[in-house]
Design a protein around this nucleic acid. Structure first.
Length: 134
DNA sequence: GCCAACGTTGGC
DNA sequence: GCCAACGTTGGC
Protein backbone atom coordinates (compact mmCIF):
# COMPACT_ATOMS: atom_id res chain seq x y z
CA UNK A 1 0.00 0.00 0.00
CA UNK A 2 1.21 3.48 -0.83
CA UNK A 3 0.88 6.75 1.00
CA UNK A 4 0.07 10.17 -0.44
CA UNK A 5 -0.66 13.71 0.58
CA UNK A 6 -3.43 15.82 -0.94
CA UNK A 7 -3.68 19.54 -0.45
CA UNK A 8 -6.75 21.64 -0.26
CA UNK A 9 -7.50 25.25 0.36
CA UNK A 10 -10.17 24.98 3.08
CA UNK A 11 -12.11 27.81 1.45
CA UNK A 12 -12.51 25.54 -1.56
CA UNK A 13 -12.87 22.21 0.22
CA UNK A 14 -12.17 21.79 3.91
CA UNK A 15 -11.52 18.64 5.90
CA UNK A 16 -14.62 19.53 7.90
CA UNK A 17 -16.67 19.19 4.73
CA UNK A 18 -14.87 15.97 3.82
CA UNK A 19 -15.90 14.60 7.20
CA UNK A 20 -19.51 15.62 6.67
CA UNK A 21 -19.80 14.31 3.13
CA UNK A 22 -17.85 11.10 3.89
CA UNK A 23 -16.80 10.78 0.27
CA UNK A 24 -15.87 13.17 -2.50
CA UNK A 25 -14.65 13.30 -6.06
CA UNK A 26 -11.21 14.89 -5.99
CA UNK A 27 -11.43 17.11 -9.04
CA UNK A 28 -9.75 20.27 -10.21
CA UNK A 29 -6.21 18.93 -10.46
CA UNK A 30 -4.61 20.75 -13.39
CA UNK A 31 -0.96 19.93 -13.02
CA UNK A 32 0.80 17.10 -14.81
CA UNK A 33 2.90 15.86 -11.92
CA UNK A 34 -0.14 15.88 -9.65
CA UNK A 35 -2.18 14.09 -12.30
CA UNK A 36 0.43 11.36 -12.60
CA UNK A 37 0.31 10.87 -8.86
CA UNK A 38 -3.50 10.63 -8.95
CA UNK A 39 -3.21 7.96 -11.61
CA UNK A 40 -0.75 5.96 -9.51
CA UNK A 41 -3.13 5.77 -6.55
CA UNK A 42 -4.61 2.39 -5.71
CA UNK A 43 -7.87 1.67 -3.97
CA UNK A 44 -7.23 1.50 -0.24
CA UNK A 45 -4.15 3.77 -0.28
CA UNK A 46 -4.12 6.34 2.49
CA UNK A 47 -3.57 10.08 2.04
CA UNK A 48 -2.80 12.83 4.45
CA UNK A 49 -5.29 15.67 4.06
CA UNK A 50 -3.39 18.95 4.17
CA UNK A 51 -5.04 22.33 4.48
CA UNK A 52 -3.10 25.16 2.86
CA UNK A 53 -3.62 28.93 2.73
CA UNK A 54 -4.85 28.75 6.24
CA UNK A 55 -3.79 30.55 9.38
CA UNK A 56 -1.69 27.53 10.22
CA UNK A 57 -1.21 25.23 7.20
CA UNK A 58 -1.33 21.67 8.56
CA UNK A 59 -1.92 18.00 8.01
CA UNK A 60 -5.34 17.64 9.62
CA UNK A 61 -6.46 14.10 8.87
CA UNK A 62 -6.42 10.97 6.77
CA UNK A 63 -8.53 10.03 3.77
CA UNK A 64 -8.64 6.81 1.81
CA UNK A 65 -8.71 6.16 -1.93
CA UNK A 66 -12.22 4.82 -2.61
CA UNK A 67 -12.01 4.75 -6.39
CA UNK A 68 -8.96 4.80 -8.64
CA UNK A 69 -8.33 7.43 -11.31
CA UNK A 70 -10.94 8.05 -14.00
CA UNK A 71 -11.66 10.80 -16.51
CA UNK A 72 -12.44 14.15 -14.89
CA UNK A 73 -16.13 14.62 -15.82
CA UNK A 74 -15.85 18.40 -15.44
CA UNK A 75 -13.68 18.66 -18.57
CA UNK A 76 -13.21 16.99 -21.93
CA UNK A 77 -9.48 17.49 -21.64
CA UNK A 78 -7.21 14.73 -20.44
CA UNK A 79 -7.38 15.15 -16.66
CA UNK A 80 -8.10 12.62 -13.94
CA UNK A 81 -9.95 12.46 -10.65
CA UNK A 82 -10.12 9.88 -7.86
CA UNK A 83 -12.76 9.36 -5.19
CA UNK A 84 -11.60 9.89 -1.62
CA UNK A 85 -13.40 8.91 1.54
CA UNK A 86 -13.07 10.22 5.05
CA UNK A 87 -10.94 8.01 7.27
CA UNK A 88 -9.96 9.86 10.44
CA UNK A 89 -9.07 13.21 11.92
CA UNK A 90 -5.61 13.80 13.37
CA UNK A 91 -4.24 16.18 15.91
CA UNK A 92 -2.91 18.70 13.36
CA UNK A 93 0.75 18.64 12.40
CA UNK A 94 1.69 22.08 11.16
CA UNK A 95 3.96 22.91 8.25
CA UNK A 96 6.17 24.63 10.79
CA UNK A 97 6.61 21.38 12.73
CA UNK A 98 7.29 19.43 9.54
CA UNK A 99 9.95 21.94 8.50
CA UNK A 100 11.52 21.77 11.96
CA UNK A 101 11.86 17.99 11.82
CA UNK A 102 15.15 16.92 10.21
CA UNK A 103 13.70 13.51 9.36
CA UNK A 104 11.15 15.22 7.13
CA UNK A 105 13.52 17.56 5.31
CA UNK A 106 13.15 15.53 2.11
CA UNK A 107 9.37 15.57 2.14
CA UNK A 108 7.73 16.79 -1.04
CA UNK A 109 5.65 19.09 1.14
CA UNK A 110 8.84 20.98 1.99
CA UNK A 111 10.76 20.60 -1.26
CA UNK A 112 7.95 20.87 -3.82
CA UNK A 113 5.67 23.17 -1.97
CA UNK A 114 3.34 23.80 -4.89
CA UNK A 115 2.60 20.19 -5.80
CA UNK A 116 -0.99 19.48 -4.80
CA UNK A 117 -0.90 15.67 -4.91
CA UNK A 118 2.32 14.15 -3.71
CA UNK A 119 3.77 10.79 -2.64
CA UNK A 120 4.71 10.19 1.00
CA UNK A 121 7.26 7.53 1.97
CA UNK A 122 6.55 4.95 4.68
CA UNK A 123 9.12 6.58 6.94
CA UNK A 124 7.61 10.04 6.45
CA UNK A 125 4.11 8.68 7.10
CA UNK A 126 5.20 7.05 10.35
CA UNK A 127 7.01 10.17 11.47
CA UNK A 128 4.05 12.48 10.86
CA UNK A 129 1.77 10.00 12.64
CA UNK A 130 4.13 10.01 15.56
CA UNK A 131 4.12 13.83 15.65
CA UNK A 132 0.34 13.87 15.75
CA UNK A 133 0.46 11.56 18.73
CA UNK A 134 -1.13 8.64 16.90
C1' DG B 1 -2.12 41.56 0.24
C1' DC B 2 2.58 40.75 -1.15
C1' DC B 3 5.82 38.23 -3.39
C1' DA B 4 8.87 34.12 -4.27
C1' DA B 5 8.82 29.87 -6.53
C1' DC B 6 7.65 27.45 -10.17
C1' DG B 7 4.77 25.54 -13.98
C1' DT B 8 2.99 26.69 -18.57
C1' DT B 9 2.64 29.14 -22.89
C1' DG B 10 4.11 30.91 -27.01
C1' DG B 11 7.35 33.55 -30.08
C1' DC B 12 11.38 32.92 -32.33
C1' DG C 1 14.24 23.63 -28.24
C1' DC C 2 15.22 27.88 -25.70
C1' DC C 3 13.71 31.28 -22.86
C1' DA C 4 10.94 35.41 -21.66
C1' DA C 5 6.51 36.51 -20.19
C1' DC C 6 2.81 35.34 -17.71
C1' DG C 7 -0.31 32.97 -14.40
C1' DT C 8 -1.00 30.43 -10.19
C1' DT C 9 0.04 28.56 -5.73
C1' DG C 10 0.78 29.11 -1.17
C1' DG C 11 3.59 30.82 2.86
C1' DC C 12 4.00 34.74 5.42
Amino acid sequence: MAYWLVKSDPETYSFERMKKEKKTMWDGVRNYAARNNLRAMKKGDLCFFYESMNGEPSVVGIVKVAKEAYQDPTTTEDWSVVDLEYNKALKPVTLKQVKANAKLSQMALVRLSRLSVQPVTDAEWQEVMKMSGS
